[in-house]
Nucleic acid binder design. Structure first.
Lengths: 112, 112
DNA sequence: TATCGTTATTCCTTTTGATGAATAACGCGG
DNA sequence: CCGCGTTATTCATCAAAAGGAATAACGATA
């Protein structure tokens, strides 16, 4: 039936009580926070406005059983952003299921 | 770690040459077209504007290797909309991988 | 030829979302 | 006590999407 390339595609995220909690964008943000130590720089590094990044962190911290990111304002360097242990655990968990998802999609694409 | 309910959630669709082709909304529209025989009624039955439904059908028909929906204007009843054989095949295919996707998500949710 | 209910298309309004600018608050260090 | 760079927050503006209204086109039927 084909000449064109048919593929199964999708998006995956984690919900808490039915509310959006962690998707690929937020995970990328968390990773950048971990490596850069600054929310502003993390946002800039992925072409995200600071405000959007800030609200994302707030939403994550409120939804999670414990905060994923610790934000400090003032002090040395003006402030900092750090991933908590809970944050690191969730990043790792997401990466695992995201990897399984890639496998799933390639498997389903074989149907066509 | 829990009191709150963590679940893996997601969306699944089919792409053709990297472009969005069939998602759950369009599949629902196709099903309603099949059962009602009218694009206008199919759109109304799922709270969709006629225009949006019409453009969705146009997009699908252009992307697909063969049209999924046949539209006729004028004549008995004013016109009609019918699913083609190709359309029925794609609906069935989508439903199968969508079912697999549900299984996948429940499996991944067990991680939490 | 007039009727009818649908398909086909355009236009305008509303609404939602994204974006950037601007500014306050903070606390360590000089 | 002032400067610095960050976090924290509000405001206004612009773009994009959504929605509804209105109307033309169509062809079997009577």
């Amino acid at each position: 039936m084909n000449e064109k390339k048919l593929t199964a595609a999708g998006r995956l995220w984690i919900e808490i009580d039915g509310e959006n909690f962690l998707g690929s964008g937020r995970i990328e943000l968390l990773e950048n926070i971990e490596s850069l130590g600054s929310l502003r720089q993390a946002a800039a590094s992925m072409g995200l406005s600071y405000r959007k990044a800030y609200y994302a962190v707030r939403s994550m911290n409120e939804l999670a059983p414990a905060p994923l990111v610790e934000l400090r304002q003032g002090g040395k360097g003006g402030g900092c952003a750090m991933l908590t242990e809970t944050g690191r655990v969730f990043v790792e968990k997401y990466q695992k299921i995201a990897h399984q998802f890639v496998i799933f999609l390639t498997k389903q694409s074989a149907v066509f």
